[in-house]
């Protein structure tokens, strides 16, 4: 072989080795290796719990107490349920009560525990052209938006929030579609949807925690108009948003870690965990983001 060939091969392989070493030093130690030695609980969670920072705040206590590592996969409720049905996760944290009941009834999930709520609120432009702040019900609020011709941004992604939105439209006897022009399904997460609504001076339905936790300067033109404490619609049962933990049924997927999932459910019901949940947000945002369900 010519000398240049050798020198090229040597330098390229040196480069690759250096790059990989750099990757291995700074990256994940368990890269491409099974982590069978540590107990790992895989949770598919709705994005609101991850984006708001709640899980980052409370999970270290669980991980330490049970010597278990938690892998969090933040997706919409629809996708979380599919991951659970296929046995790709051990537990889901979701918020779509009717779907959850169906999910358990079909034998996909066990040990469903509803532990907290995070009510929905309707947010919109500060000048409120549709006068949502004077609405008499959640359905009335959305009717006003439809009548005014103001834009409404919908999640449109089969998430828990999307299902709730459809339920409220139905309660008002309406079924909007994107062909109406003012109704804009974006098919994205709550954070992106709020950013879009802010740019479009549109209304949207959001859970309160995500709205409070998102960087305020990014949604400066949006205001909560219906459903927040002190506003009409506070405590409206239609805006209730209970969250549940459901373990994947070990009978349909024996390889899932039901033991770890049960530990997690036990831990969720501990007084210390519930206290951390109810206090979360006070320090950073001046108010709690999640409310415990009485008697849970």
């Amino acid at each position: 072989m010519p000398r240049t060939t050798i020198s090229l091969i040597v330098s390229v392989s040196t480069f690759l080795v250096v790059m990989l070493l750099a990757g291995y030093v700074t990256g994940t130690p368990a890269f491409l290796m099974n982590r069978d030695d540590t107990d790992t609980l895989r949770i598919a969670t709705t994005t609101s719990l991850d984006d708001s920072g709640l899980l980052n705040d409370i999970l270290p206590d669980f991980e330490e107490r049970y010597n278990t590592q938690v892998d969090l996969i933040a997706v919409g409720t629809g996708q979380a349920m599919v991951l659970a049905e296929r046995g790709d996760v051990d537990l889901v944290l979701v918020h779509a009560p009717e779907l959850e009941q169906e999910f358990v009834a079909q034998g996909y999930g066990v040990d469903r525990t509803t532990f907290m709520t995070n009510p929905f609120v309707i947010v919109g432009p500060v000048d409120d052209p549709a006068e949502v702040a004077d609405a008499s019900s959640a359905g009335d609020a959305l009717s006003r938006i439809a009548d005014s011709g103001a834009s409404f941004v919908s999640r449109g992604d089969d998430s828990g929030t999307h299902f709730k939105e459809l339920e409220i439209w139905a309660s008002a006897g309406l079924s909007p579609s994107s062909s109406m022009g003012w109704y804009q399904p974006v098919g994205q997460g709550m954070g992106e949807t709020l950013l879009t609504a802010n740019e479009m001076e549109a209304y949207t339905l959001t859970d309160r925690a995500t709205f409070v936790a998102i960087a305020p300067e990014r949604v400066a033109d949006l205001e909560s108009l219906y459903g927040s404490p002190g506003q009409p619609g506070e405590g409206d049962p239609l805006l209730d948003n209970p969250y549940s933990a459901i373990a994947v049924n070990p009978e349909s997927h024996p390889e899932t870690r039901i033991d770890l999932a049960r530990n997690f459910v036990d831990w969720l019901n501990m007084d210390s965990t519930l206290t951390s949940i109810s206090e979360f947000g006070v320090e950073t945002h001046g108010e709690p983001l999640f409310t415990l369900i009485e008697g849970s």
Partner: peptide
């Protein structure tokens, strides 16, 4: 950030090799 960047290189370099 360093560990995220490290994993990014690990994954993409392994894949391209």
């Amino acid at each position: 950030w360093t560990s995220v960047a490290g994993l990014t290189i690990q994954v993409s370099a392994t894949a391209i090799i």
